[in-house]
C-alpha cells in the first residue's frame, strides 16, 4: 500500500502497528469504557440522569457561555489576525507572541489570575464595582474566562490564510471599481470565512469542556453557575459514577459532533486556501 510501490520505504507495519496499539490502549479503550458503562445504566435511567434539572441547567450554562465566548473570539480574533498580518506597528512580534499565552499558561493559573483581576477588590473588579457591576461568580465571569482560553484559536486559524491571500485579488477588485469596504467584505472575508469558522468551532469545543480556568471564577452554585464538567467532578467525588457517566456521555457525543464539524470545516478551508 506504499505510495511509491512496495519496498520503497520501510517501517510501515511497525509504525502503523505501534500507532494503533498505543491509540487503542490510551484513547480508544478508556473512551469505550465510558460508553460501555453508560449502556449498563439502561435507557430510562440514563435519560433520567442526563436530563435532571441540575444537568439541564448546567448544559444551558456551559453551552451558552462557550458560545458567547467563541463569538467574541470570532469577531475580535479576526481583527487581531488582520492587524498582525496587514499592519506594521511597534512591538508587533511581542503582540504576536502574546496570542499564544492562553495555550501555554496552565488553566489553573489563568483561572486564578482572571478571578483575582475581576474580584471586587481586584484591578478590574474594583472599577466594575464602582459601577455596581459584579462579574465573579456569575455567567459573565465564566464567559470572560472562556474568552481567554479560546483566544488563540481564531487568530491562529485565520493568520496563515490571510498571509497566503494573493494581493492581486484585492488589486483586481480595486481596479474594477470596488471600494475598500466592498473589497474587504466581498473578497477578503469570504476567503477567510472557513478558517475563521474553524477557529470558532475549535474555541467552542474547547470552551464546552473547559474546567481549570472556569472553576475558580464560576462560584459553582448548582442551577446557576455550575458548568457541566464541574457537575461531573462533583458526582465523581460523591462516588455517583452512574450520574457522572451519563453526563460525560452527553458531553462526549457533543464533542464528537463538533470534532466532525471541525474536520469538515478544515477540509473546506484547505480547498479555499488552495483556490485563493
Amino acid at each position: 500500500m506504499a505510495r511509491r510501490g512496495p519496498g520503497a520505504l520501510p517501517g510501515f507495519g511497525l509504525a502503523l502497528g505501534w500507532t494503533l496499539t498505543w491509540l487503542s490502549l490510551i484513547v480508544l479503550v478508556p473512551l469505550a469504557t465510558l460508553v460501555w458503562k453508560s449502556t449498563d445504566l439502561g435507557w430510562a435511567r440514563f435519560w433520567a440522569l442526563a436530563t435532571s434539572k441540575r444537568a439541564l441547567a448546567s448544559y444551558q450554562l456551559t453551552f451558552g457561555t462557550a458560545l458567547a465566548a467563541a463569538l467574541v473570539n470570532l469577531l475580535l480574533g479576526t481583527v487581531v489576525a488582520w492587524v498582525l498580518v496587514r499592519y506594521r506597528f511597534w512591538g508587533k512580534s511581542v503582540v504576536d507572541a502574546l496570542v499564544d499565552i492562553p495555550f501555554a499558561l496552565p488553566t489553573a493559573v489563568s483561572g486564578l489570575a482572571i478571578t483575582a483581576a475581576l474580584a471586587p477588590r481586584g484591578w478590574i473588579g474594583s472599577l466594575l464595582a464602582d459601577h455596581g457591576v459584579r462579574v465573579v461568580y456569575t455567567r459573565y465571569g465564566i464567559t470572560i474566562a472562556l474568552i481567554f482560553t479560546g483566544l488563540p484559536f481564531v487568530v491562529r486559524s485565520v493568520q496563515p490564510l490571510l498571509q497566503q491571500l494573493e494581493p492581486e485579488l484585492e488589486e483586481a477588485a480595486t481596479m474594477l471599481g470596488a471600494s475598500r469596504w466592498q473589497t474587504v467584505t466581498r473578497v477578503v472575508l469570504p476567503a477567510i470565512a472557513p478558517a475563521a469558522l474553524t477557529g470558532f468551532a475549535l474555541a467552542l469545543a474547547r470552551g464546552i469542556g473547559e474546567y481549570g480556568s472556569v472553576v475558580f471564577i464560576a462560584g459553582n452554585r448548582p442551577m446557576s453557575t455550575e458548568i457541566t464538567p464541574l457537575l461531573i467532578m462533583t458526582r465523581l467525588e460523591n462516588y455517583d459514577y452512574a450520574g457522572a457517566t451519563a453526563l460525560a456521555l452527553v458531553m462526549l457525543v457533543v464533542s464528537f459532533a463538533l470534532l466532525f464539524g471541525i474536520n469538515l470545516l478544515q477540509a473546506w478551508s484547505r480547498r479555499r486556501g488552495a483556490a485563493a
Partner: peptide
C-alpha cells in the same frame, strides 16, 4: 483534544 479534561481523567477512574 475534543474531550473535556474532566472526562479524560474520569475514563481511567472507570477503568
Amino acid at each position: 483534544f475534543a474531550v473535556s479534561p474532566v472526562i479524560s481523567g474520569m475514563v481511567f477512574v472507570l477503568l
